[in-house]
């Protein structure tokens, strides 16, 4: 019976943990957008503006990008 109980507690705790994490994520999403740190909605444009030569929505600084190009 020991393992059954353990199983029960484990699933209960993990469920709580995941639920907290999920809610934390919701709070984080909206807060960081309100504070102006991030704009999630602009990521939606990745699908619309997807030509190979169009400017990435989110790229690291151009210099390191170029370095990577050369290294290939």
């Amino acid at each position: 019976m020991g393992i059954r109980e353990l199983q029960g507690y484990a699933s209960f705790l993990m469920t709580i943990l995941f639920v907290v994490a999920l809610y934390g994520y919701i709070v984080y999403l909206y807060r960081s957008e309100k504070k102006g740190e991030k704009d999630y909605e602009k990521f939606g444009n990745i699908a619309l503006d997807d030509e190979i030569d169009s400017t990435p929505i989110n790229s690291s600084d151009p210099i390191s990008d170029e370095k990577k190009e050369r290294n290939k």
Partner: peptide
């Protein structure tokens, strides 16, 4: 981890 967790708890111990 998120998808494996359910399986671990649900299936293995039984």
């Amino acid at each position: 981890l998120v998808i494996a967790f359910a399986g671990l708890v649900e299936i293995l111990p039984n």
